[in-house]
Amino acid sequence: MTMTSETAIRSNASNLWGLANPTRFMGFANRAIPVLGIATMLLFAIGLYLSFTAPEDYQQGYTVLIMFIHVPAAWLAMMTYSVMSISALGSIVWRHPLADVSLRTAAPLGAVFTFLALATGSLWGKPMWGTWWEWDARMTSVLILFIIYLGIIALSKAFDEPSEAAQPLAIMTLVGVPLLPIIKFSVDWWNTLHQPASVSRFDRPAMGPEFLYPLLIMALAYMALFFTLHFMSMRNEVLARRIRAMKMKQARRK
């Protein structure tokens, strides 16, 4: 490895580590949020255009349109939990406050995406399977994920001092991690109403390009929206902690 590339790697690593500083993170977030916001709107515009101009499915008819919002919501429900799990590790191993900020601000977003996956899935299931709800492995495991999200949100609000909640929140989040492979592979391990994965085999996806491209662009739009809202929420939480610190300082003066 040349000296230049070594220096570049070290510089990138120190830049990333530097973002863990709340003040530097605020500067980064203030620059990143508008860019991400514009990217989100563009991706949604393209994704929705491609979705609504996609042909009718020969079996599902126009209900295939629900897939373009249901599947990204379900993916994001799991991706958000993965982000929270990485944050939980950062919170437990390095006890870094920004990792805790990331974890607690991602939870409500994860709950919204999981709720949307359940609600749109139910609205898709009725015309396709003839039922709003079935206690099959995929739906039940996603419902459990939703309940875990609500539990994490409740726990994050149960402490007056945010730093006291960091470790319990991280532990509770890590306890829920085994649910992710259960959700992913539930369609292979058990007999469910859901079909096996259609997109994971990129070399041979079980879906025509007229449905695959709108789906992938909608998934990117959901992902960009998640990162926009997550950075905005993290910025809000850092501000809340600054306000709290100032109030404590004022109270000590009195």
């Binding site: 209900t63 609600a119 609205l123 015309p127």
Partner: peptide, 28 residues
């Protein structure tokens, strides 16, 4: 538009829009 299943498709998009726009508004 959307054929016989419009009663399922429109609420799906409506719920998604309200939830995501609502979350964005609250955070803002």
């Amino acid at each position: 538009m959307f054929g016989e299943h419009a009663a399922f498709i429109i609420p799906s998009y409506l719920i998604s829009f309200v939830a995501l726009a609502g979350a964005s508004l609250v955070i803002w």
